[in-house]
Amino acid sequence: MPLPEPPDAAVELGAHAADWRAAVRLAGEALVRSGAVSPMYTERMINVVDEFGAYIVIAPGLALAHARPGRDVKADGLAVVTLAEPVRFGHPHNDPVSVVVGLAVRGADAHVSHVAELANIFNDPAAIPALASATSADEVRRIFRKGA
């Protein structure tokens, strides 16, 4: 099953977030708008960082906001939020974050294939800066399809 493309409703570019919590919330709201999750999922994504720290900041400038599969996930979904002013999550090396990718999956099997695709896209170091400076949802989808 391929990685779901983020629909227009799940892309928010040049957003303003006061802190990491607001940034993750924007990604959650984008997933809610696209119909992938109910609002409870957003709270679970925030709880993950409260509980375990900023480990979701897995590369310089990029946070992968996500939680475990659950009943609040209605469909596999991907959201992309770029921040006009990067925010600090508290990661020792990868702060500040300018791109938040929100990921929701219904089952663990889908997760494995989706993240392998994410690795294919983001192993290109140009991908994060390209997303951070994208000016349209079409451009975001093109980066996910073909790379930066």
Binding site: F52, I56, L64, H66, V105, H111, V112, V115
Partner: peptide, 15 residues
């Protein structure tokens, strides 16, 4: 190892 065993640890495993 990641916080939840889904997502970031799977990326780390692949790479």
């Amino acid at each position: 190892i990641c916080g939840q065993g889904v997502g970031t640890s799977a990326i780390l495993k692949v790479n």
